[in-house]
Amino acid sequence: MIMRNRFFPSMLLLAALFALAAAPAVAAEAPIPKNNPDSTELVNKMNVPGDITKGLFWNGKTVTFHGEAIGEVMVRDSYAWIHLNDDAYMERNVEEGAKLGGYNSGMAVWISADLTKQIDTYGDYKHEGSIVEIEGVFNAACKEHGGDMDIHATGLRILRAGHVVDDPVQPWKVWLALALIAIAVGLWRLDRVTRNRISPHRGI
């Protein structure tokens, strides 16, 4: 009964909290325009649809591409690998109330390690990474990197700094957890008691 009484009010409270948290962020910064071409187009668009021998449309072309720096930078000597996601979670992630919008999608970028020093945050559960714009050559199958699909970037610009993401414990989950623990412990006791009643001498 406790559950039912608290459940809806706490959901409402939660929704209100989300709205409060999200509103200023949206108001403060203008949305970032879509990439042209975006990562999906880079992977998909062929010169002649269905004919793989004619290759990918964007292969070898110089592109400007932006996305959320995700995960980490992996420095290899003077160059580094970064990954830029230009998906539905580029500006805000699910914990901050972003709508689910399919898989992540992005591009691997090979870039001078010095340039990556400007990136302050990489995206993970607790962080929303910096949104980074790079300019470089798109390779459908890079000769230098064992056929990887990548962009060899020459320039880098930070469009928006990253930030820390809070994921507060939702109150209704705590109530749910407490109720379920109580039931589980009760059943465990019941299991013990009835076991002894039926077969006092041999436990199973």
Partner: peptide, 17 residues
């Protein structure tokens, strides 16, 4: 990751029940 931890407590309890 406290929110995730609570998710797991809920799921563990459900399995035990």
């Amino acid at each position: 990751e406290w929110d995730t931890a609570v998710d797991f407590i809920v799921a563990i309890s459900a399995c035990m029940i």
